[in-house]
């Protein structure tokens, strides 16, 4: 694994001058992920915040080659570029060594881009797909996605008088990608960027497609202070809402076990989108959230060989 000292000497591929909000965790994700690349690179981005802040014509924040096609098709687009690369290599028309990274937000990955992602992974294109998961359609005005957590208030799941925020738990995309039997799948958080650097290096070294799901808070959508982006990206891990783990050739491994597993309130409190859950009438919502986290966490511990007994299914 490349040392921090070494990484600090590398020239940023995602460079200064982009127009992301101050404290934007996805922007830090772009930088930290691409920092781990030491070959030529083609980056693809689905439509979303990171695309619109990084490539406003006639400027670009990308020192790698970069392509944006549409919202739902970054995986298919990079499939095409990667195939072009193989075609050129086969014909001896290109010597340079390239890697391919497709980035999508959770909307572009969990929802509208899921088919394109699944297809690209099944076909075995050697690309790393990184989902920067900020748990909602933040670019279009904070709507709920299938990654938005239970209870969260969004523009399309507001904390209403009758219905208090999103009624469903998150889709577990990382597990869906594990089911694709890829050489490398991991879950990471920008709050623990060294773990992310390491995972990107592993993913790029994998002989086929790889996938990393990165929790990267949107302070606008989570209704927190910009300075707290990384704090909340960390707390997601420390409460075991977003465990860090990897699955290498089907083998689960926990990347980090919190010294003390914090109650979910520690992550929920202070996030404006969960404020209503702290009202006395909604006390059962936090309880329900905690139970879901615990069940999923125990299940993951079992998969990672840290628990002997197989726990039950998480409650819906």
């Amino acid at each position: 694994m490349t040392s921090v000292k070494e990484l600090s000497k590398r020239r940023d591929i995602f460079c200064a001058g982009h127009r992301a909000c101050s404290g934007c965790a996805p922007a830090i994700t772009m930088r930290q992920v691409t920092l781990a690349v030491n070959t030529h690179l083609v980056t693809g981005l689905s439509t979303g915040c990171m695309e619109v802040v990084s490539s406003i014509y006639p400027y670009t924040a990308w020192r790698s080659s970069f392509i944006h096609n549409a919202f739902e098709n970054v995986a298919a687009t990079i499939s095409g570029v990667e195939t072009a690369y193989r075609a050129l290599k086969k014909k001896g028309k290109l010597d340079a060594e390239y890697r391919f990274i497709a980035f999508g937000g959770d909307g572009g990955t969990y929802d509208i881009g899921l088919q394109s992602l699944s297809g690209a992974m099944e076909r075995g294109h050697r690309m790393l797909y990184v989902c920067y998961d900020n748990q909602g359609y933040m670019n279009t005005g904070i709507q709920r996605s299938s990654s938005t957590p239970y209870g969260a208030a969004t523009s399309t799941s507001p904390a209403g008088i009758k219905i208090a925020g999103k009624q469903q738990f998150q889709k577990d995309l990382t597990e869906i990608m594990v089911a694709h039997e890829l050489p490398y799948v991991a879950q990471a958080s920008i709050g623990y960027y060294r773990d992310l650097n390491k995972k990107v290096e592993k993913a790029l070294a994998a002989p086929g497609p790889s996938f990393i799901n990165v929790l990267a808070c949107c302070h606008r959508g989570w209704r927190i202070e910009p300075a707290d982006s990384l704090k909340y990206s960390k707390l997601g891990v420390d409460t075991c809402m977003w465990p860090l783990y990897e699955v290498e050739n089907g083998v689960y491994k926990l990347s980090m076990k919190p010294r003390e597993k914090l109650p979910i309130e520690e992550w929920l409190k202070g996030q404006g989108r969960f404020n209503h859950m702290f009202k006395p009438d909604n006390a059962d919502m936090i309880k329900k959230f905690q139970e879901h986290v615990d069940e999923k966490w125990n299940r993951l511990l079992w998969k990672c060989g840290e628990l002997k007994e197989r726990p039950g299914q998480p409650a819906k």
Binding site: E72, V81, T83, A84, A87, L88, Q115, S116, G119
Partner: peptide, 28 residues
């Protein structure tokens, strides 16, 4: 032929992959 075939999962992806390949500087 020496063509690399991408058997995609939809026409949307067929055109998207063709865009990616053509952007990669090859005949698609």
């Amino acid at each position: 032929v020496e063509t690399e075939l991408i058997a995609v999962e939809s026409e949307h992806s067929a055109m998207s992959a063709a865009v990616g390949a053509a952007a990669g500087g090859v005949r698609a």
